[in-house]
Simulated scan of single mutants.
Amino acid sequence: MKINMYVNNEKFIAGMTMKDQAELENNNMALHACESTDHVLENRKNLATELHCELDDFVCANQTHSSNFHRVMLDDKGRGANQLNNAIADTDALYTFEPNVLLCSFTADCVPVIFYNEVNGLIGVIHSGWQGTVKEITLKLIEHLKLVEHCDANDLHVQIGAALSQRKFEVDEEVYLRFKALGYADDFMFYKEETHKYHIDNQLIVKRQCELAGIPAGQITIDQTCTYVNPDGFSYRQDKQSGRHLSFIMKKGE
């Protein structure tokens, strides 16, 4: 199974599953976008084996391109793991302090954000498509963690996963103006005269949101894999029937 492994140390394991022709449905991990739920569940079970955990340790949300987030508790374990109808509703970011819980986020061009706090053991995942980015889901969640969970942004480490590259992320003026209204995205957008399209670097705008929330730039890493260009990528823009990557993080138990 192809996995871009981002962190694997004594405390945390985090990564992103990639498209893999050797697996069922090319290693699709999404129950909401699949040919067969059995195939996806088989892929998820294989991932659990790779990560030395159980499928019932997974926690998944019903992602809606919102700016909503949810603190995962131990009784949330298994939600969305085997079926869609018990996934955490209308939520695009999950975080927890609990060990042995695999937080999951699904993407196919959108920006996955994985984060952890070395000091207090907090972990989280964020699904930030262009709508989530203009709604500032990452910035809002980090501000919430600082205010409500008493996290120091200086202790947070962020991994931005594989996503649609700026070269392939073309938008019309309507979407461009929503990014421009953020007030800090101009450096990450350009206009192409030949196509009359704007090109946006969603990964770098999410990185800027992390920095605005106080996370040191040196603690933010970006996976440069373009999900459209790279054969290991699922791209909704390229293929509306595409599967989904699963970005994950788990705090290892004592």
Rank of each mutant, 00 (worst) to 15 (best):
N4P: 03
N8I: 09
N9Y: 03
N9C: 04
E10W: 00
G15Y: 00
D20Q: 10
E23Q: 09
E23Y: 01
A30S: 15
R44Q: 12
H52I: 01
L55F: 11
D56G: 10
F58E: 03
N68Q: 04
M73S: 15
K77R: 07
G78F: 03
G78T: 05
G80W: 06
Q83M: 11
L84D: 04
N86L: 01
F106R: 09
F106G: 00
T107N: 07
E118G: 07
V119M: 11
V119G: 01
I123P: 06
V134H: 14
E136L: 06
E136M: 08
T138K: 06
L139K: 07
L141M: 04
C151V: 15
D155C: 13
A163S: 10
A163P: 05
A163T: 03
S165N: 07
E170L: 13
E173L: 11
V175P: 02
Y176H: 11
F179H: 10
L182A: 12
D186F: 05
F190V: 07
E194Y: 09
Y198P: 00
I205L: 12
V206C: 11
R208G: 11
C210T: 01
G214P: 02
G218M: 04
V229F: 12
N230L: 05
G233F: 04
Y236N: 12
R244A: 14
